[in-house]
Simulated scan of single mutants.
Amino acid sequence: MRNEAEARQAAVRRVGRGLPLERALDGTRPKAWADLDEDIRRAVVHGHVQPSHAWLTGESGPGWRRLWRRTSAPSPAAPSGARLALALCDPDGRIREAALPYAAGRPELLPLVVIRATDWAEPVRARALALLRAELPTASHESLTVTAPVILRLAGRLRGGEAVELLDALLRDGPGAAVTALLLGCRDAATRRAALTVALDRRLYDGLGLALVAAGDHDPVVQERAASAAVAAGEPDATVPVLLGARSGRVRAAGVTALRGAGRHAEAEPYLFDRSGRTRACARWVVRQGGGDPASVYRTACAGADVPDRAPLGLGECGTRAVDGAALRKLTEHPNGRVRASAVAGLRLLDLVDPRRMRELLDDPEPGVVREAGRALRPWTG
Rank of each mutant, 00 (worst) to 15 (best):
R338F: 01
R378W: 01
P101G: 03
L183P: 10
D293Y: 04
V297K: 04
V251S: 10
G81M: 04
W285H: 06
A233W: 06
S276C: 11
D309A: 14
A343E: 10
C282K: 14
R192H: 08
V198I: 12
R264W: 11
L110D: 09
R159V: 09
T118H: 04
R106I: 00
T332F: 05
A177R: 10
A121I: 12
A326E: 15
V49L: 15
C89W: 07
L86Y: 09
H48L: 15
R65V: 13
R252A: 08
L313H: 13
F273T: 04
A169Q: 09
G185Y: 10
A327C: 14
A305T: 15
R96Q: 10
R29F: 02
L131C: 08
L208K: 05
L362S: 09
A230V: 00
A215G: 05
L272C: 06
V222F: 12
E317F: 04
D188G: 05
L110A: 13
A7L: 07
R133Y: 01
L67P: 12
I95K: 03
D201E: 15
L154A: 11
P294R: 10
D92A: 09
A121D: 05
L377I: 00
G18A: 11
E122W: 13
L182E: 11
K31H: 12
D92C: 06
R14Y: 01
N336P: 00
E97W: 14
E267H: 04
R284F: 00
T28S: 15
L19I: 04
F273D: 05
R65E: 15
L347H: 14
A226P: 03
E372Y: 12
D217T: 01
G63Y: 02
G245Q: 01
W120C: 00
V286W: 04
A54W: 08
V240W: 07
L19T: 02
M358A: 13
R275G: 06
L25H: 02
A373I: 02
V213L: 11
L56Q: 10
E235C: 11
P335A: 05
R203G: 11
S72T: 15
R83C: 00
A238H: 05
V146G: 06
Q223T: 02
S60D: 13
R94E: 12
E59W: 11
A195H: 09
A190Y: 01
S143N: 04
P30L: 13
G292T: 03
E317W: 03
P270V: 01
R13W: 00
A211H: 07
T279P: 06
V164A: 15
R378N: 00
V198N: 03
G160M: 08
L110C: 12
A283N: 04
R8A: 13
L361F: 04
E267N: 01
W380P: 06
